[in-house]
Design a protein around this nucleic acid. Structure first.
Lengths: 327, 327
DNA sequence: GTCGCTCATGAAAACGTTTTCACAACGCAT
DNA sequence: ATGCGTTGTGAAAACGTTTTCATGAGCGAC
């Protein structure tokens, strides 16, 4: 049927061991190496990676588990992760959990069965809390969301600082009735809320916060409700790009302009936040850097397993646009 | 070291064959099945998928090869493909080619070495032309871009009709000097150009076309140049979402408003095309449907290999917005 | 010239499963 | 009772590699 290493060996007049060594990096004389290469070309041989993995006990595979690849933040991160993986000669298995704890568990089990080299994972808060390093025989690097300290390597934004920075910026621009709308499933949103909260207190302002599932539709509905209530806030801070989109839609639908009707600020510097008029003030995350750093942590841990747990904290960048214009 | 099926067998007091059958669907008495399940729980056994694949000669894996997952079109399609794959108990390997023929070849080879169950692939025009079915031992379903007729199963938009529809719409709105800007690497862009061309001829209008690499930056540069030339077109049709974004940026930068300064229309109903003001007229692609159909074709071919090659052609939907307002 | 040493090579074991094959036990029709 | 298909089970082969182990050749040092 399919051509295997035995056929190549026969064609080259050598043993299978020599073929394996010639294709890998074992010591083989130049003459034989050439014979083998010729035989490979002649037979059209393609190594069977399953067999290779089984025998060598090394999958050369990275698992990437995110909430939803359609979230541009994860899309961008995934691209960086993929680049790093393939550059290191590894493949990438992609999984979408939809923020569902059950699917998270399912995919983590799958990764064990795949005997993957390592996993990059953006867990929900619930799962992050239960994640115990000793349960995993491979490096597990958390991104965007973080677990309890000391658990796993991870790379996150300085969310608290970013949340505060948005408040500071709005205060500076003359706003005081500043509300916050945050995602309900991730530790990230929690931290951003904490940043919002502490900055509000520092400025002596009264916080007003709500939570929604981190998706555009629920956010739109919530903001629509909020806008219809008496005592509408002067400004609204939201905790990610999807929620920001929902907020924008709700404001448009209610005929509320920004920053006049309500000032808007959020996270994720997606292209559309600049194209819309007036532009939206956002905290830009270094998305590619997050993916690259995550893979860096992963490879480091493979090399030095005993190493203490590291958490890379990256700073966001405030991009001020018209949506938070001076009041 | 790690617990294998032998350990489970020993713990349950049965043979490895029985364990395998109990976990699969072989005939096993209820009593033994329970013993095995208990032993699995007790030992914390996780099957080794590499070994399983090697022996059963079935990878239960789908490869997805696209130009760039950051292109929202591919993001959305990939999500649908992933859902279908995991629903069928298969994993997904993701590859980004960056429209590079060499990487396309690399990944196709990788898929052979993985002995994947099937592949969903969005090839560049160049690669699509050279793709010969007999070179692949697995079903290969093309999406978005298409190869020579009769080659592979595929699912595509009716690009010619869509390209014409945009022209018809613009003519109806009173425009006549309608230009076209198309991606230079995909057959898709070619077809959309053909649709544009034939509609222009049909209306007795003179076509004006240019090509760019299908990405936002080159598109922005080209449109900027175009806008600066004398005899600026009244309307511009572009062949995908990234190019549309470039065009919008260029218009903004040049202080050209739409539809007054230049009418804009394109492809891909991404959220921002609605949020921007005035909204952009686009052809909406049924992205989820494309992914689902592709997996359908793939599974069908697995079931009935001899079946004639099928090409599913889906219709786009014209969404008229302010960017093509009456002239 | 003999003793170690390195080096290239082949035979065979090993990786962890599934599947084939053989067989025993059982029920059922003769 | 005998024969026969069915069913559940275990021993062992098989999947396609890499790796271990043994061997023999080549070579410099004494």
């Amino acid at each position: 049927m399919t051509v295997g290493i035995r056929d190549v060996a026969r064609a080259a007049g050598v043993s299978t061991a020599t073929v394996s060594r010639a294709l890998g990096k074992g010591p083989v004389s130049d003459a034989l190496r050439e014979q083998v290469e010729a035989a490979v070309r002649a037979t059209g041989y393609r190594p069977n990676l399953s067999a290779r993995r089984l025998r060598s006990q090394s999958a050369q595979t990275i698992g990437l588990i995110v909430a939803d690849i359609r979230n541009p933040f994860f899309t961008a991160v995934s691209r960086a992760v993929e680049d790093a993986a393939y550059q290191a000669g590894m493949r990438l298995i992609l999984c979408n959990t939809g923020e569902d704890a059950e699917r998270e568990a399912l995919y983590l089990r799958l990764m064990q069965e795949e005997r993957v080299t390592g996993v990059v994972f953006a867990p929900t808060r619930r799962t992050a809390e239960r994640l115990r390093p000793e349960d995993f025989p491979f490096p597990l690097v958390l991104i965007d969301r973080t677990g309890p300290p000391g658990g796993h390597d991870g790379v996150v934004l300085d969310n608290v600082a970013a949340g505060s920075a948005l408040v500071d910026h709005l205060v500076e621009q003359g706003y005081s009735r500043i509300a916050g709308l945050f995602g309900s499933t991730s530790s990230t949103a929690e931290e951003r809320r904490d940043g919002y909260l502490s900055a509000m207190r520092r400025h002596g302002l009264e916080p007003r916060m709500r939570n929604v599932p981190p998706d555009a539709e629920p956010a739109q509905a919530e903001v629509a409700r909020w806008l219809a209530e008496p005592g509408r806030p002067e400004a609204l801070i939201v905790s990610n790009g999807l929620i920001l989109m929902g907020a924008v839609r709700a404001a448009r639908a209610a005929g509320v302009a920004w920053p006049g009707g309500i000032a808007l600020a959020g996270f994720d510097n997606e292209p559309w936040t600049e194209l819309i008029e007036p532009g939206l003030t956002v905290i830009e995350q270094p998305v590619a850097e997050i993916g690259t750093q995550a893979m860096g942590l992963l490879f480091d841990r493979l090399k030095t397993p005993g190493q203490p747990v590291r958490k890379v904290v990256l700073s966001g960048r405030l991009i001020a646009r018209g949506s938070t214009g001076r009041r």
